[in-house]
Simulated scan of single mutants.
Amino acid sequence: MSTTDDFDQAVTQMREANQRLLAGDPTHYSASWSHSDDVTIFGGFGSYEKGWNQVGPRLEWVASRYSGGHDTFELISTGMSGDLAYLIYLQNGEVRVDGQEEYSPLALRVTEIFRHEEGIWKLLHRHADPVAGKDRVHNNLSQIDR
């Protein structure tokens, strides 16, 4: 199997594991991450963590906030060079957070960096934040120019 095929398979497994995370189970999602000291996360709930000793518990905390949901991934860009690869995508869906009965919208822009470790692609960094509309951003930039 080629490195590209391996990467595609790792992404598929990570997306499946993400569905379990939204149901409150971090086990498979955590397994898709590197457990190294240089792993980082800038998560959708804010703040950041560095090193597996911080990232691992953060993923467990995130899973504990979810009690159901579904999402889709709209790929914007992907690339690979040597032992590093990246994904840039929009993550949209609905999630149930903190015991709420109603689903809330999920709309994140995501950048993920992967590293090929011992023959397996592992997530090395994730940055996710809420999607802001282009008009809102454009209006804010216009105000700066004045």
Rank of each mutant, 00 (worst) to 15 (best):
D8A: 14
V11R: 08
V11A: 06
V11I: 15
T12Q: 12
M14P: 00
M14T: 06
E16Y: 02
E16A: 15
A17C: 11
N18G: 14
Q19C: 01
Q19Y: 00
R20N: 03
L21A: 07
L22I: 02
L22G: 04
A23C: 03
G24K: 01
D25L: 01
T27E: 15
T27I: 05
H28N: 03
H28A: 09
H28E: 14
Y29L: 05
S30N: 13
S30P: 01
A31T: 02
W33T: 02
W33C: 08
W33Q: 05
W33H: 08
S34I: 08
S34R: 11
S34K: 09
H35W: 11
H35P: 04
D37R: 07
D38V: 12
D38W: 13
T40A: 14
T40W: 07
F42W: 15
G43N: 09
F45S: 11
F45I: 12
G46V: 00
S47P: 03
Y48Q: 12
E49M: 08
G51C: 09
V55K: 07
V55M: 07
V55W: 06
R58Y: 12
E60I: 04
E60A: 15
R65I: 01
R65N: 12
S67N: 14
H70K: 04
H70D: 03
D71G: 03
E74N: 05
L75V: 12
I76A: 05
I76C: 00
G79S: 09
L84Y: 11
Y86V: 10
L87R: 15
L87H: 08
L87Y: 01
Y89C: 02
L90K: 12
Q91F: 14
N92Q: 12
V97S: 10
V97I: 15
V97K: 04
D98T: 02
D98F: 07
G99C: 06
G99Q: 08
Q100V: 02
E101F: 04
E102A: 14
Y103M: 10
P105E: 12
A107T: 10
R109A: 13
R109F: 03
T111Y: 10
T111Q: 10
E112C: 01
E112Y: 08
F114K: 03
R115S: 10
R115W: 04
H116F: 15
H116I: 03
E117K: 06
E118I: 03
E118S: 07
W121Q: 02
K122F: 08
L123W: 01
L124D: 07
H125A: 05
R126G: 03
H127S: 12
A128K: 05
D129L: 05
D129T: 05
G133A: 13
K134I: 14
V137Q: 06
V137T: 14
N139G: 02
N139Q: 15
